[in-house]
Nucleic acid binder design. Structure first.
Lengths: 167, 167
DNA sequence: ATAAATCCTACCAGTGCGGTCGGGTTATGA
DNA sequence: TCATAACCCGACCGCACTGGTAGGATTTAT
């Protein structure tokens, strides 16, 4: 259960754009250098963000990218959705524009998919987490943590302390 | 962002076991037939559940599997964890035995990982959803949704596992 | 004109996933 | 006692998808 690296890179890119003033555009090369990411790959990533209307671009020399909206107005579910294409815990959640959710097994007859309840709850949890986080928060977080001092007692963001990795 | 089919199959298997009385074990073959899943693959799946102590088994003729605990006492985060190995939205969440969380990029120097905040919230959302769902709920759900008549034995072997979803 | 940058499409190698196969080992029961 | 039903285990395999590269075309500032 993992987001692809497109999500990772794309979010980093958005944060980086959020740190810049939107006066003049930021080039991909600058971001690639700052984050140590492959430029050619970033191009593919940022294309998704552009098509989703989250960033704008200018071509030519001194061109680059900037946020289409202020970071406070950008919820992270939009960003992740643009990057990943879908936010679903299971591929049987691919549903057409209607409300029908069909599962690969138990195709239509018989009982409803027993796992559906579970995956819907998980999906709800994920989407809620993303919706309630704005890009501005991440920008702020990254500003606080840049190489000045050790982390202040970070107000625990609802991450349970239970052992996340059981051997 | 997707769980693997191990999670899907494993959860179905657990639900199926929850529907049976724990008096006598249920054979994998029965479950495989009921759900239309490949038996040999189910063996791998159930092995994880057994190693995690969620199911017990008896070998030999009339052997099979049963829940190690009543379904009310089984939270789904245990199940998914046993099946997936880890519940993390991003592989940079692989952290060693200490508390350090290290990210693939921005290795040690400089600011903390800007995306960390986001992924931790997502992870929290997922884990909370799973923790607050018990196997008993899923069993109950599946009981509610079963048609009165048992499904006709439709031998749809060789049903394409993968592409059946996208219309 | 040249350089800096976005844009676009095709391609490629590795890995992980879903699944199979073959062969144990253990228990029942005829 | 012996066949059979089931669990158990490890090796293997094709393929789709991911992460990344290559190469070029277009646009714009200097």
């Amino acid at each position: 259960m993992i987001f692809s690296s497109k999500a990772e890179y794309g979010v980093r890119l958005m944060v980086e754009l959020g740190r810049q003033s939107p006066e003049h555009p930021t080039s991909l090369k600058a971001i690639a250098d700052a984050e140590g990411l492959p430029l050619a790959y970033l191009e593919q990533v940022v294309a998704r963000l552009r098509k989703a209307g989250l960033v704008m671009s200018a071509r030519g020399a001194h061109g680059g990218y900037w946020l289409a909206r202020p970071a406070e107005k950008i919820a992270m579910d939009e960003v992740v959705y643009a990057l990943e294409g879908t936010i679903a815990p299971m591929e049987c959640f691919v549903h057409d524009h209607t409300e029908r959710v069909l599962c690969s097994h138990e195709p239509d007859a018989g009982r409803g998919c027993a796992t559906k309840l579970l995956w819907m709850r998980v999906q709800g949890g994920v989407i809620r987490s993303l919706q309630t986080t704005t890009l501005a928060e991440l920008v702020e977080f990254s500003r606080r943590h840049e190489r000045s001092e050790p982390e202040p007692p970070e107000p625990d963001l609802s991450a349970p302390r239970r052992a996340a990795v059981v051997a």
